[in-house]
């Protein structure tokens, strides 16, 4: 059931966008001939529908060119749609862009909003003028953000001297200066090292839990999705191929779970295995099995293993989210939009 569009943080109805792309079959000189257009419409986003509740943490994922950035740019008012409509915090982004900008934050991992040659504090001061904030309010918020993001002396160092991780912490702090109710984060961890990525995820979760900021995130990093978001929308070639909880995403696309068994004493290899199970590796004291799909119960398989001899250790593991996402990107057939929408109405 849908919530009212003005109650949702984001409500998207049949939103679509096409771009004019050069027609590769038209030669350069032909473009000069009147009537020979030389361009054709390329659909970046087919009509899509979804909602995001206030305070929700949603990941928009999909392979390159799936329409993720186009969706974010439509929802922030950067682009006008070719069709359909959207409401973000009750406003139509491309019509009420300036008003909406007071309520949202946008962080593009690949596009810095910090002045390269000046310290972040100068950008904060600029943003004070951009958002018409009182100096005393900004002082308080900068102090708070400095503590939360451990900015310390970073605030007064030229941005060009900061590491990528330090810069991204400053970007996030800058995005929060005006206390937005909704944050669009487009690949916020791109290019960061493991520690910096972890820090960004922690900060984003805190934005949500502490300030109630709705999070709408795109990323190719499985851990961003798994650790930050509770819900995923999968875009495939401009269409929604999946919309549901992140946990369901794993169940839906899990091809096999693995069971690692270590026996107390050497055991002989079994002649047959339970249905839906493959024996991948056998050593005298160790077996590795794969249980196909999410529907095959693991319990009977473990019981069957134990029947072969005393067990020292058993480890059942889902495939990492990285593999789930890689499978989604590789296998378009795995994604049946109609079936998924029916499964997750």
């Amino acid at each position: 059931m849908t919530m009212r569009d003005d109650e949702a943080a984001i409500a998207v109805r049949d939103l679509s966008r096409s771009f004019d792309r050069p027609d590769p079959t038209v030669r350069g000189w032909q473009r000069l001939v009147p009537g020979w257009r030389g361009y054709r419409a390329s659909v970046a986003l087919h009509p899509v529908n979804f909602e995001v509740a206030r305070g929700e943490r949603v990941a928009l994922i999909g392979p390159n060119g799936a329409g993720k950035s186009t969706t974010i740019k439509l929802l922030t008012g950067i682009l006008h749609p070719s069709g359909g409509t959207a409401r973000v915090l009750g406003q139509v982004p491309w019509e009420d862009r300036a008003d909406l900008a007071f309520e949202i934050a946008t962080v593009f991992g690949q596009k810095s909003q910090l002045w390269y040659h000046l310290p972040p504090r100068s950008t904060f001061e600029l943003l004070r003028h951009v958002y018409d904030l009182e100096a005393s309010v900004v002082r308080r918020r900068v102090a708070d953000l400095t503590e939360r993001f451990a900015l310390g002396d970073l605030l007064d160092r030229p941005v060009r001297t900061l590491s990528l991780g330090e810069r991204m912490r400053c970007e996030l702090a800058a995005a929060l200066l005006h206390a937005p109710r909704l944050a669009f984060l487009d690949e916020p961890t791109i290019g960061l090292d493991v520690v910096a990525r972890q820090a960004v995820r922690t900060h984003v979760r805190e934005m949500n839990s502490r300030d109630g900021t709705t999070i709408f995130l795109t990323s190719h990093d499985a851990a961003d999705i798994e650790q930050v978001c509770e819900r995923a929308i999968v875009l495939q070639a401009g269409r929604i191929a999946f919309d549901g909880p992140v946990s369901t995403l794993r169940d839906r696309f899990v091809r096999a779970r693995s069971i690692d068994v270590r026996f107390v004493d050497p055991v002989s290899a079994p002649g047959t295995v339970p249905p839906g199970t493959n024996l991948v590796e056998t050593e005298p004291q160790r077996w590795r099995l794969e249980v196909e799909g999410a529907s095959t119960a693991v319990g009977p398989v473990v019981a069957w293993v134990i029947a072969h001899g005393p067990v020292a250790d058993v480890h059942v593991a889902d495939p990492p989210m990285e593999e789930v996402i890689a499978a989604i990107y590789r296998d378009t057939d795995a994604l049946d939009p109609v079936a998924n929408l029916q499964a997750n109405p």
Partner: peptide, 8 residues
């Protein structure tokens, strides 16, 4: 993009 997501 940078200019379009700010209120000025």
């Amino acid at each position: 993009d940078f200019y379009l997501v700010l209120p000025k």
